[in-house]
Write a protein that binds this DNA or RNA. Structure first.
Lengths: 209, 209
DNA sequence: GTCTATACTGTGATAGAC
DNA sequence: GTCTATCACAGTATAGAC
């Protein structure tokens, strides 16, 4: 029966249901926090009884895992979509990358918490769900390589710097813009440090605002 | 009866028990994670039944709150103790401050998670428990002021930078030293940015290793 | 595949005896 | 202050009818 129109339609229906469940899980996570996610809540949102979720996901962690993969896949897609329109000048390019990540995270703190912090108890993503995150890192590596930054440590420093600003924004000034205002300055500091050539006037550009 | 030897001894006994409970809570948090802390576990460690804890703390959040205050008070004490022996040269001084915070956090991730991340569900520290944290910030402000860094935004940038490195270390390389190796480099980057005068040779000094 | 019903565990928290 | 007993509830998971 495998591969027949019928089974493929069934499979499609199954996938659609899974996506629906995941969408409900994201909604719940955004409203109450990632760690506060409950199967009861998710089930209610999709019009199911909690046990029915087990027809689609083996456990709550499996849902987290799928969310993790889906979240990184979505950001990967956003990166790929934005890439062609990034400004060519290195500093402006770095600024645009930083702003994209920062704004994406602040617009969806649940996304940042699940994917980039360790906010869920004993959750470890599976290799499959981890893959898109590696693809994002690879894109970043390519971008930096094109700027002449080939040092792996320099990339770690970049990630820690931008991640630290996002985390500070969410923890110390949620809903505000205190750390977002520091973003251009932080990028400039980093660019100076890695020896990027000075760009043209830039503070006013704000590619991703 | 208030103020008599008897009542003060009783009060002292009470305080001792509270400290014992908090110590047990820290032990439990370090072993299983701050968010996984349970009253049962804490009670068992102090040889009590769980309900008895309510004679000393009004709720689980009250325990978190006391831990928060105690944790910042301990770090404040460490800061004050270290301060006289900090190197006078600005860059070396900044390096020492960064290393102290970094190593303190990495040595006790539970401390970092409770005090500096938002790892506990709906926990918000009380004003009283928050006070020692403000004192730490004030010390940092004074330190930076003496170096000529009076910009509040520059302090935010510092906190985000060092915090980002600690968080990355704990999340991406627990038990390792990948981000710790970046610390001196990050401090140098920051010092250049804020225009600190160049120090003498420093990479080899490692004041707080 | 989805439902109802149920089981089991663990949680923070309270009441009242001693 | 500490205990026993118990609550109310959330959480994950399974069995079996439809």
């Amino acid at each position: 029966m495998l591969g027949t129109p019928t089974s493929s339609r069934i499979a499609a229906r199954r996938e659609a249901t899974q996506r629906e469940i995941l969408a409900a899980a994201w909604d719940a996570a955004r409203e109450q926090g990632v760690a506060q996610l409950t199967l009861r809540d998710v089930a209610e949102r999709v019009g199911m009884r909690p046990p029915s979720l087990y027809s689609h996901f083996a456990s709550k962690h499996a849902i987290y895992d799928a969310m993790f993969g889906q979240g990184w896949a979505a950001y990967l897609e956003a990166c790929r979509a934005t890439r062609p329109s990034l400004p060519p000048e290195p500093r402006a390019r770095l600024r645009a990358i930083a702003h994209q990540y920062f704004d994406y995270s602040v617009a969806d703190p649940a996304w940042f918490q699940l994917l980039n912090q360790r906010l869920v108890p004993g959750f470890e993503p599976s290799a499959e769900s981890y893959a898109p995150s590696l693809a994002v890192i690879e894109i970043l590596r390519e971008e930096m390589e094109e700027m002449g930054i080939t040092d792996a440590a320099a990339m770690d420093l970049w990630v820690a710097l931008v991640g630290g600003l996002v985390a500070s924004q969410l923890a110390n000034d949620p809903g505000g813009g205190r750390y977002r205002l520091l973003l251009d300055r932080a990028v400039e500091m980093y660019a100076d440090h890695v020896g990027l050539p000075l760009g043209t006037t830039h503070r006013a550009e704000e590619e991703n605002s």
